[in-house]
Design a protein around this nucleic acid. Structure first.
Lengths: 147, 147
DNA sequence: CTGCGTGCAAATGGTTTGCACTACG
DNA sequence: CGTAGTGCAAACCATTTGCACGCAG
């Protein structure tokens, strides 16, 4: 995502546009591996050496609250961040700890159909996310397409 | 779960049976709301006033490693613990932060059928968990049955 | 007996907070 | 200009760790 687009997206949400917000937002897009706050800080400092840890956390909270990013929870108890594209699920790799987005409209449609027929007692569903654990079959040559 | 059963389960896993392990295991069963470590410590001290924080965490790790309990991650970054019964999914209440188990063999069967037909490229699935977010419809009188 | 498990307290590490300063709008 | 955002460093808090002692097997 280029700078102009990042600015536009932030502005659309009614947020003040600051260099830090733009940088954090772009960095999460660049690091397409669901980075931790630490990953983000390390990378962002290449272009913004003086950005502070506290600011990054505050910016991340702001962007999450404005639905420009989402938090992904991990087994390790550290949060990771994900640019919001559209509804998607997550593939968790047991071996490499990689988290990969998984979009599947057909799956979503099936789930929706299932739960509109079969209600959960006393519970109103607002969202369903699949957490698919497993392992990537690494090919000899090159990286994952999904990664 | 009574003490004899708890001892038996722990023994079955080849673990040393200690009063602390038995107490932690029973406490997680009693607190059927997916307690945090803090919840567990607070409650366990009613019967074992001198158990230490470090021990509780170590025991929880041990029991998780032996598959007597499982860790449930939360948005807040704190872990919660769940006695392992069988495969189940989780209902997350947006309003009360309650986490409730959801078992549904029919759903599991449907998912299995779906993913045996439609493979995910380069990924071998070992487990699928649904994270169903929403709100409980509280009845005027009394608590949730599921709670 | 012998080593694994426990208690304690200090350390860790990710995240948060308070405050003076800066700059977006 | 005024207020929301930033930088900094200290504080926080769940969890981990190291070590001496105790108890399960």
């Amino acid at each position: 995502m280029n700078t102009a687009d990042a600015i536009e997206k932030i502005k659309q949400k009614g947020l003040r546009v600051t260099p830090q917000r733009v940088a954090v937002f772009q960095t999460v897009w660049e690091l397409n591996n669901h980075p931790t706050a630490e990953d983000i800080i390390r990378n962002i400092r290449k272009s913004h050496p003086s950005i502070s840890v506290g600011t990054v956390y505050k910016v991340l909270d702001t962007l999450v609250a404005s639905q420009l990013l989402e938090k992904v929870k991990t087994d390790k108890g550290t949060m990771r961040y994900d640019p919001i594209l559209s509804d998607h699920h997550h593939l968790y790799c047991k071996v490499t700890d990689r988290i990969v987005d998984y979009e599947d409209p057909e799956l979503d449609k099936m789930l929706e159909a299932f739960f509109s027929k079969k209600k959960i007692e006393n519970f109103a569903i607002s969202d369903i996310k699949l957490e698919i654990t497993g392992t990537f079959k690494t090919k000899a040559h090159g990286k994952q397409k999904n990664g």
